[in-house]
């Protein structure tokens, strides 16, 4: 609002002398609040150019993005191409991890019709509900979000009146009134898990942000649009009992010469084990996300 672009109509000579002082005034009046508003407005405008979830695209579109860029990334994308066929992009609005997880999980259920998995995850969701209750959250603040997720879960199972197709799943995932509610459901679940096992998560949180568990959940988990890190992924994977593979596409390289692409599997803690990584069974995650610094998209196996 206070930013003036280019010379104004009223007198250039006057403008030339008055600009320095008026600029100074402007900046003096330009509070943190204004900057914050402007920053979020720019961000909002930028992200709204892309859908919450894009269409499935061949991996070659990813390579096209880096054509004029770093060679190592192009080589890594070539390696990725040996295993993965396609990518589905998500909007970079700070919710990309949760939204990728949402679509990837529901799409998996829709394709596999794995009723056992649905029953299992429902039991975990009930556990999450109890966790939030025992942490003192008022039921009405989270129950709508839980109900909406369970409704989506039910509707991807075929053979009911409420069953939906893959196209409809994509539509719903692009519909803010559904998509954001499910993202928020995951945020509740993640926050509950971190708070419940605060002793386990505390050192990781300290390493990330130097905040307490309480501050971290309030400022980095519960508000929409706050980006996710390994702490969020670990907590969500543990809470729902769903393993997640994250494939890293960055400039890192190893000395041995050959290019390889790193990945990390987040495997949920079994039973009451406090440490997630000590599971002895090897699990292959059915959810694979591509991580590029600051952003998550969905990857599809060949």
């Amino acid at each position: 609002m206070r930013n003036q672009e280019g010379p104004q109509a009223d007198g250039e000579s006057e403008a030339a002398t008055s600009i320095p002082t008026s600029e100074l005034d402007d900046w003096a009046n330009f509070g943190d609040d204004d900057i914050m508003h402007q920053q979020s407005a720019i961000r909002a405008e930028e992200v709204e150019k892309t859908l919450f979830l894009g269409d499935k695209e061949p991996l070659s579109t990813l390579a096209a993005e880096y054509q004029s860029g770093s060679g190592i990334l192009l080589e890594k994308i070539k390696v990725l191409g040996e295993k993965y066929a396609a990518i589905r992009r998500t909007r970079g609005d700070g919710n990309c991890f949760f939204r990728s997880f949402m679509f990837s999980y529901l799409e998996h259920i829709l394709e596999s019709q794995d009723r056992e998995e649905v029953d299992r995850v429902k039991a975990n969701v009930e556990q999450c509900r109890k966790t939030l209750q025992s942490l003192g959250y008022a039921d009405f603040t989270f129950e709508d979000f839980f109900a909406l997720f369970l409704e989506q879960l039910e509707s991807v199972l075929q053979g009911n009146e409420t069953s939906i197709s893959q196209d409809e799943l994509l539509c719903r995932s692009r519909d803010q009134s559904i998509s954001d509610y499910v993202v928020m459901f995951f945020r509740f679940v993640t926050s509950g898990e971190i708070r419940k096992r605060s002793e386990f998560f505390e050192p990781f949180i300290m390493g990330l942000t130097n905040a307490t568990v309480e501050q971290f959940c309030k400022s980095s988990v519960e508000p929409m649009g706050e980006e996710s890190d390994h702490v969020h992924i670990t907590a969500l994977s543990d809470a729902l009992g769903v393993p997640i593979r994250v494939v890293y596409l960055d400039r890192s390289s190893c000395d041995s010469g050959g290019v390889s692409v790193n990945h990390h599997d987040f495997v949920p803690a079994v039973g009451d084990l406090p440490n997630a990584s000590s599971s002895s069974v090897t699990v292959t995650p059915f959810i694979t996300l591509l991580y590029r610094p600051g952003h998550y998209d969905i990857l599809y196996l060949k």
Binding site: D33, M36, S40, F140, T141, K218, S219, P223, M224
Partner: peptide
């Protein structure tokens, strides 16, 4: 503003404003 979450209900909003009265943030 940017730290909003649906976790807050009207009671929580008003309680936060009440505590802001005695605990202002002079940095913004």
């Amino acid at each position: 503003q940017n730290q909003w979450s649906p976790i807050y209900d009207v009671a929580a909003i008003l309680t936060s404003i009440q505590s802001l009265l005695c605990d202002p943030n002079p940095n913004s």
